[in-house]
Computed example of a mutant assay.
Amino acid sequence: MMEIRLATAEDARLIAAHRRAMFAAMDAADEAVLTTVEIASIPWTERMIVENRYLGWITSDGERPVASAGMFLLDWPPHPFDPEGTVRGYLLNVFVEPAYRKRGLARELVQRCLAEARRRGIRMVTLHASDEGRPLYETLGFAVTNEMRLSLTNE
């Protein structure tokens, strides 16, 4: 039977492994970079959960964790999209094991994140979607934006 629970700091290793698998599924980086990301994600995730800035949910099939998703709470200045808000939710680490996909697990986890954002009075939630995930987010009301990126690590 599938169960969903809140993530704790003890889940940081699992969340980091799912994060790695998510990026691997998108062919986002080579194995060495993915290993670095996974290792570096563990202490960051532990710290953010303890500071109540990372809210995560994990779906398990019996004892086996098969899906997870998180929302990072960002201090954010008032903006024309949210003129009174000072916190923005950022969805991340949405991952479902391949054998468990197409069962609505990612949708349920994202909906948990959004319900928590509403409960906290957060009015703006953003994310970066993979090509595979984009249709899900669009059905939940997310709109494509014009965000750009500059990496200063390659200078």
Rank of each mutant, 00 (worst) to 15 (best):
D75T: 00
D82K: 02
D61V: 11
F72P: 06
S68F: 07
V66F: 11
R88G: 02
S60D: 08
G70V: 11
L74W: 01
N93C: 10
D61I: 07
G56C: 10
G56K: 09
W57D: 10
T59V: 14
Y90S: 11
P78V: 01
M71I: 06
K102Y: 05
I58H: 04
G70F: 09
F95E: 02
E84I: 02
G56S: 13
I58M: 10
R101Y: 04
L73G: 01
P83S: 12
V66A: 10
D82R: 01
P83R: 09
V87H: 02
L55A: 01
I58Y: 07
A69V: 10
E84K: 01
T86Y: 08
W76G: 00
R64D: 11
E84Q: 04
M71K: 12
S68V: 11
P78Y: 00
Y90C: 08
L73I: 10
V96M: 04
F95L: 02
V87N: 01
F95I: 02
V96S: 10
W57I: 14
D75V: 03
Y100G: 14
T59D: 12
D75Q: 03
L55I: 12
A69T: 15
I58R: 02
M71A: 02
W57C: 15
M71S: 08
P65Q: 09
E97P: 05
V66P: 02
D82Q: 00
R88I: 01
E84N: 07
Y90N: 07
L74V: 03
D75A: 01
R88E: 00
R103F: 03
L91C: 12
G62H: 01
L91H: 08
M71H: 07
Y90L: 03
E63M: 11
L73V: 09
L92M: 14
F95W: 09
R64E: 15
E84S: 06
R88C: 06
V96D: 06
P65G: 11
S60W: 09
L91N: 14
Y100W: 13
F95H: 15
F95M: 00
V66W: 06
R88P: 06
V96R: 03
Y90M: 04
Y90E: 03
V66K: 05
Y100C: 10
I58W: 08
A67Y: 08
L55H: 15
P98C: 05
R101V: 06
L74Y: 00
P65D: 14
L55Q: 04
P80R: 09
R101P: 01
P78S: 09
T59W: 10
G70M: 13
L92D: 14
V94T: 15
H79T: 13
A67V: 05
P83A: 10
P98G: 07
P78E: 11
N93G: 15
F95G: 09
V66R: 00
Y90G: 11
N93I: 05
P80G: 09
R88S: 02
G56W: 13
R64G: 00
H79M: 05
E97M: 12
D75I: 03
G62M: 12
E84M: 08
V66N: 00
I58F: 11
R103M: 13
R64Q: 14
A69P: 05
L74E: 03
V96G: 10
P80L: 00
L55W: 05
